[in-house]
Amino acid sequence: MAILRVKDLTKIYGKRDTTVTALGGVSFSMERGEFAAIIGASGSGKSTLMHLIGGVDRPSSGSVTVDGNEIFKQNESELAIFRRRNIGLIYQFYNLIPTLTAEENIMLPRLLDNRKPDEEKLQTILETIGLTGRTKHLPSELSGGQQQRVSVGRALINDPALILADEPTGNLDSKSSREIIDLLKLANKRYKQTLLIITHDEKIALQADRIITIEDGLIIRDEEVR
């Protein structure tokens, strides 16, 4: 069964003379455990697509169904709760809460659910992302690569059905970039989490099972790589 189904997704910004069509009716689906990469030039609509799938933004028209739930039929609170439990988001600029420690940032989705931290799960995540020794550090005390690891940990903590990563290596050096992609691939393979990455790096894209190419708000190519 498709874990993600995007149907005729459209996003238009502005009014009258200043309208910009960021997405012009995008449709595709992904199976559970699939790893796909979205590539395209700057301004092609990749990030817009990512934000819509993640429920962070609302489309002008179209629908997104995640794990059988049509997310835009939910109100804002329901969508937030759904996102917290079912979608993991990773951004280019980490987007950590600066006043929380690494451990707290990782646990954030669970803490928002008022659930007690699962220590065993946390340890597993920390070991997976390789940050067991720096859990009490604030983001300002971590390197870029470490911060992105924390971001990955946060995305994984609730075992989400879908992980969305928007240029996760865009702000990292090559070594850190490799490490992050390896982590994401590990989560994909080990936990069967569906992974959708936006990247402009072809080397990263080629590591995916499938590459979706976007141009001017439309999918122009969708091909299996392996």
Binding site: A80, Y91, N95
Partner: peptide, 16 residues
Amino acid sequence: TGQFGILKSVGATKKQ
């Protein structure tokens, strides 16, 4: 504001 955006993206509700 940016922090609120992050929290929302992670799944915080308006009330939170």
